[in-house]
């Protein structure tokens, strides 16, 4: 008899600290499944962000490094350069990657660093209590946009993946979502592609994952999945960007 489904070797059996309906747990598992399937657990190094996923290394059963807020791609760049045989990825939220760490994101991409980036976009700062993120939608209420995000003074949702498209050093960009089982399978395929690109030495690959945050969207888990599908994806359309 052949075993076709089990707990991923790369995912520790620990209790989750994430809120009900949060997407981080799914994303952590998808990465673990991909690492297992590619047989790279012993040479994988994950770089955790500052944000809700700050203790991602408590879930993954492979080597990890922390990084100061926004600096994951600086840390990852050095790790990959001094240990080129390892497989290095960063796991970053929208605040980490597209606000405080925009500089590191753009320059690591522009240098064409052979890295894999998993970018969790949930349009809000979770760990600090639901403040406006660079990706917060126009009109979306947060702790720091109590009347909803206004274009005047607060600008538009930042589309970092589309911005990165113009850089020659970037080899692969895809936006995926966690709002349904079908989309989760597509997300896994994109993550796998981004890791394969690194294994094959192709260069900078980034997967943007639209992920639910029921707690700071003020919704039930079910409502938040519908909100992704009906509202968020209009601003952040899915599919291959590059």
């Amino acid at each position: 008899m052949k075993k076709i489904f089990s707990h991923p070797r790369s995912l520790r059996k620990v209790t989750t600290h994430y809120c009900p309906g949060c997407g981080h747990g799914i994303a952590h598992r998808l990465i673990s499944e991909v690492v297992d399937e590619l047989g790279i657990r012993e040479k994988t190094i994950g770089v955790a962000p500052v944000g809700c996923a700050v203790v991602a290394y408590d879930y993954w059963d492979f080597d990890c490094s922390e990084a100061a807020h926004g600096r994951a791609l600086a840390v990852a760049t050095a790790i990959k350069r001094v240990k080129p045989k390892t497989i290095v990825f960063t796991y970053q939220g929208d605040g980490d990657l597209a606000a405080i760490g925009t500089n590191e994101t753009i320059h690591a991409a522009n240098r064409g660093e052979n890295l894999t980036v998993i970018f969790i976009n949930n349009a809000v700062y979770g760990m600090t209590g639901g403040q406006m993120a660079p990706t917060t939608l126009v009109g979306q209420k947060t702790a720091t946009t109590p009347k909803g995000r206004e274009v005047k003074g607060q600008g538009y949702p930042l589309k970092i993946s589309e911005m990165l498209k113009v850089l020659p050093g970037v080899k692969y960009l895809e936006r995926v979502s966690l709002h349904s089982p079908q989309e989760i399978l597509k997300a896994k395929a994109a993550i796998k592609q981004a890791f394969l690109n690194q294994i094959q030495g192709k260069g900078f690959s980034l997967v943007e994952i639209i992920s639910p945050c029921p707690t700071y969207w003020g919704m039930s888990p079910r409502q938040s999945l519908n909100w992704i599908k009906e509202v968020m994806l209009k601003e952040f359309p899915l599919g291959r960007i590059k």
Binding site: V47, S65, A67, A68, G70, R71, A74, V75, A76, T77, A78, I79, R81, V82, K83, N103, E104, I106, H107
Partner: peptide, 22 residues
């Protein structure tokens, strides 16, 4: 050795963190 001209002082010291961690 590996030399990188970083995009900022912040990136440079955090690159040092990453290399040292290895």
């Amino acid at each position: 050795g590996v030399f990188i001209q970083a995009e900022s002082e912040l990136a440079a010291i955090n690159m040092v963190f990453g290399a040292s961690a290895c």
